[in-house]
Amino acid sequence: MKKLSIIVPVYYNAENLLPLYNDLREKVFAKLTWNYELVLVDDGSKDASYSVMQELAKLDSKIVLVKLSRNFGEHAAILAGLSKCSGDCAVRKAADLQEPSEMILDMLEKYETGNKVVLATRADRDEPATQKALSSLYATIMQKIALPTMPKGGFDSFLIDRQIIDLLVDMQEKNTSLMGQVLWSGFQTATVPYTRRKRTIGTSRWTFSKKVKLALDSFYGFSSFPIKLVSGIGILTSFASVILLIVTLVHKCMGIITAEGYASLLIILLMGIGLIMLSLGVIGEYIWRIYDATRKRPPFIIDEQK
């Protein structure tokens, strides 16, 4: 019998875990024709999440526990779960109950028709308009400059074949987007739309700074656009400088300029310094990623596994 692995990254989700397990048991496990395992990955939670995970494991022998030594981030936690799962395919499931559990069956159905990747795309979300706008903006920008196959509105959950699981685990990339890697792999892909629910239990730890980091990792990890943009600005600035130089020389020869232009000189200096700093910042982001990769530190460290 084929086996499905359900990977759930856990970070300060002590209150969600029992409702999540009951929801999965009722809406997924009871209807599955496949064998399955539920892989819970504690991403360095400081609440009672791991204790609840241990209690659930006593109730169900198909639950696999993975505890990371500290908080490495959600994508690293998912990767840790993928490295320990044994299924023919694996699906990422959020612990916050904002995704309908039954969509896993829909994703599995699409997988059985020959698709090696199935994305759970956000058709709508019961969340504030600002959050919707930011999410849509991120997906649109990624689609335009980095990953053309990014679905409109983006996605969080996915189902992938064992071939892709092994690929992602072998890559061991850091400072990257796991979702971007799934899209980058280029395998036959299907989508399952769903409405993201409003969170009713607990508080989200998906902070603005983490969202910004994900956006930067996605841009720098899958697009050369930032460095091309800086190069383009540099070329335009060079042309503008040459034109300004010619105009200045002509005016000087015609006697229009009788004194040094302090304001003009200051503006040019500030623009030049700003451009140099911007260029160094973009180049520095790429150099940091090269340096981080050469150190070969693992993207996650497993403390316990049961």
Score class of each variant (00 low, 15 high):
295 R>Y: 12
52 V>F: 10
51 S>N: 07
211 K>L: 15
302 I>N: 03
291 Y>V: 09
286 Y>T: 09
293 A>V: 02
285 E>P: 08
57 A>S: 15
283 I>V: 09
203 T>S: 06
211 K>Q: 14
113 T>E: 08
10 V>S: 09
65 L>E: 06
84 K>T: 02
49 S>P: 08
235 I>W: 07
101 S>N: 12
103 M>T: 09
229 L>K: 14
123 A>I: 01
15 E>Y: 09
36 Y>H: 08
306 K>W: 04
56 L>H: 13
222 F>R: 07
230 V>C: 11
139 A>V: 06
82 L>E: 00
147 L>M: 12
173 E>G: 02
139 A>M: 03
302 I>C: 03
150 M>C: 15
93 K>Q: 10
252 K>V: 13
265 L>H: 15
37 E>R: 13
229 L>G: 13
10 V>P: 07
129 A>R: 12
241 S>H: 15
1 M>D: 01
8 V>P: 14
231 S>W: 05
255 G>V: 15
296 K>W: 03
201 I>R: 07
196 R>Y: 02
12 Y>Q: 14
299 P>K: 02
249 L>Y: 12
59 L>V: 01
15 E>C: 05
267 I>G: 09
140 T>A: 10
264 S>V: 10
23 D>N: 14
237 T>D: 11
169 V>F: 04
285 E>H: 10
24 L>S: 05
277 M>S: 13
144 K>N: 06
84 K>V: 08
114 G>H: 09
175 N>E: 06
77 A>T: 00
45 S>P: 03
153 G>M: 00
305 Q>P: 05
102 E>L: 04
288 W>T: 13
129 A>G: 01
221 G>N: 02
73 G>R: 00
246 I>R: 03
245 L>D: 06
236 L>Y: 07
110 K>M: 05
67 K>E: 12
279 S>K: 07
79 L>I: 00
234 G>R: 12
23 D>I: 07
257 I>D: 12
212 V>D: 09
28 V>I: 02
192 V>N: 04
160 I>M: 00
31 K>V: 06
63 I>R: 15
12 Y>K: 12
303 D>E: 12
